[in-house]
């Protein structure tokens, strides 16, 4: 079973719909037992970081998520909340990744919105994906490069397009909105 963590933060129907297009039924849930029992867990998120953290705390999910042992995929804000700290709303995150989420400098247009490719990537999440393939991004804050970075994209500077530590994976882009390349990445995650 694929569990999509439902914590009232953003557009989660599109994530569920992406799995439907792959012929899979993913379940939207905030029930700890269902999340613990799932084979794969998706941690999505759109919106503002400190508000989203409050939502997680209100349901106790902030203590549950770091204890998960099955493959977990954070998407967009989900990825940023898996980091130690976010400048957006000056909030602590869940601390899986020892990185601080930072605001893009205003040298260029912010948000970074649209299709962008990879400068580098590694690991099974990117099987059958090319560096030149574009995926869809929309974000004003970014995760800098660190030891847990497994993919880099360039906008203003290089930033983490994907992270991995143990069973935790995270992507800054929206695989559920990234056409066939996004579908491939979701399938790669499901194959972990």
């Amino acid at each position: 079973m694929i569990a999509i963590i439902n914590y009232k933060s953003g557009n989660i129907k599109s994530v569920k719909d992406a799995f439907s297009r792959l012929g899979l039924n993913a379940k939207l849930t905030n029930n700890p037992e269902e999340i613990l029992a799932a084979d794969k867990v998706i941690f999505p998120g759109v919106g503002e970081a400190s508000f989203a953290m409050e939502q997680l705390k209100a349901t106790g999910l902030h203590t549950l998520i770091p204890t998960l042992t099955q493959p977990v995929l954070g998407i967009c804000l989900g990825m940023q909340l898996l980091c130690a700290y976010s400048e957006e709303g000056q909030t602590d995150g869940l601390g899986i990744f020892d990185l601080n989420v930072t605001r893009f400098p205003k040298d260029r247009k912010v948000p970074h919105m649209g299709w962008n490719n990879f400068e580098s990537f590694e690991g099974p999440l990117f099987k059958n994906v090319q560096l030149s393939n574009d995926v869809y991004f929309v974000h004003s804050f970014y995760v800098p490069i660190g030891e847990e970075t497994i993919a880099q994209t360039q906008y203003i500077q290089n930033f983490s397009a994907a992270l991995n530590k143990d069973n935790f994976y995270a992507v800054q882009f929206h695989p559920e909105k990234s056409g066939k390349v996004g579908q491939q990445i979701l399938q790669n995650f499901l194959a972990l």
Binding site: S14, D17, V138, E176, K177, G182
Partner: peptide
Amino acid sequence: NIPFTVGGGIRSVDDVAELLNAGAD
């Protein structure tokens, strides 16, 4: 499987919530 925007006749935050919950980006 790509992003989409919906417009027309939106007057309130509730109108927006309804569209985003239905899947609009």
